[in-house]
Amino acid sequence: MSGVPETVVDDAVLVLSELLSNACRHGRPLRSAEDEGEDGDVRAAWRMDERGRLMVEVTDGGGPTRPLPATPSVTARGGRGLNIITALADDWGVRDTSGGEVTVWAVIGAGRPHDELSTRVGVPGIGFAAPFDGLR
């Protein structure tokens, strides 16, 4: 994307990857009347908002649970995706439609210092900032 800092694009790619993974793992595919008996799709989109921030979103056919950040154990193989999104995005949320579709969106803003990552990424109850303080 022209004019968007590379760090914002990098964060957006990771966030979009997490959103797509979650949609494929937990959501149902989108269906339309002509899809009868066929597999559906998951829809991804990105755009710049009115404040110059990059917005990414993924829409699927909904799932059995609402997307919420988890508190995985240290040895768990998954459950960190929405925590990663929370750390990298300025804001994120879930939008439902009356047809059962669910869109999870995230806004990644420009101008945020990228070297704050160690203080933003973490698992509840486990602090990562202290071990990295001496590396600055």
Rank of each mutant, 00 (worst) to 15 (best):
residue 122 G to R: 14
residue 67 P to L: 04
residue 109 G to T: 12
residue 50 E to W: 08
residue 65 T to F: 09
residue 12 A to D: 08
residue 92 W to P: 11
residue 6 E to S: 14
residue 41 D to L: 11
residue 126 I to P: 05
residue 94 V to L: 15
residue 99 G to T: 04
residue 65 T to G: 06
residue 57 E to R: 14
residue 43 R to L: 07
residue 61 G to M: 00
residue 51 R to C: 05
residue 41 D to P: 01
residue 96 D to L: 10
residue 83 N to L: 14
residue 61 G to P: 01
residue 9 V to Q: 03
residue 72 P to M: 05
residue 78 G to K: 01
residue 35 D to P: 01
residue 48 M to E: 15
residue 34 E to I: 08
residue 87 A to W: 04
residue 25 R to F: 11
residue 92 W to M: 08
residue 36 E to Q: 14
residue 14 L to N: 06
residue 11 D to Q: 11
residue 126 I to N: 08
residue 1 M to A: 14
residue 88 L to V: 04
residue 62 G to H: 09
residue 57 E to H: 07
residue 48 M to T: 11
residue 4 V to A: 12
residue 29 P to Y: 02
residue 39 D to E: 15
residue 130 A to T: 04
residue 103 T to S: 09
residue 74 V to E: 12
residue 55 M to A: 13
residue 74 V to H: 06
residue 56 V to W: 10
residue 107 V to R: 15
residue 60 D to H: 09
residue 49 D to E: 07
residue 122 G to K: 15
residue 115 D to N: 12
residue 25 R to C: 02
residue 24 C to W: 10
residue 25 R to W: 13
residue 136 R to V: 05
residue 35 D to E: 07
residue 80 R to E: 02
residue 49 D to M: 07
residue 126 I to T: 12
residue 64 P to Y: 07
residue 7 T to N: 15
residue 48 M to Q: 12
residue 5 P to G: 03
residue 53 R to D: 13
residue 41 D to Y: 09
residue 7 T to E: 15
residue 99 G to M: 01
residue 103 T to H: 05
residue 113 P to E: 11
residue 115 D to A: 12
residue 46 W to H: 14
residue 35 D to L: 13
residue 107 V to N: 01
residue 51 R to A: 13
residue 83 N to M: 11
residue 45 A to T: 13
residue 15 V to D: 00
residue 56 V to F: 03
residue 2 S to W: 11
residue 45 A to C: 06
residue 91 D to H: 09
residue 58 V to M: 03
residue 2 S to T: 12
residue 12 A to M: 01
residue 25 R to V: 14
residue 56 V to E: 08
residue 119 T to L: 03
residue 118 S to P: 09
residue 28 R to K: 09
residue 102 V to H: 00
residue 119 T to R: 13
residue 105 W to L: 01
residue 24 C to G: 15
residue 40 G to Y: 02
residue 24 C to E: 14
residue 77 R to D: 05
residue 34 E to K: 12
residue 19 L to H: 07
residue 44 A to Q: 09
residue 131 P to A: 02
residue 65 T to C: 02
residue 31 R to A: 10
residue 21 S to H: 15
residue 70 A to G: 06
residue 128 F to P: 01
residue 61 G to L: 02
residue 108 I to T: 03
residue 98 S to V: 11
residue 77 R to L: 10
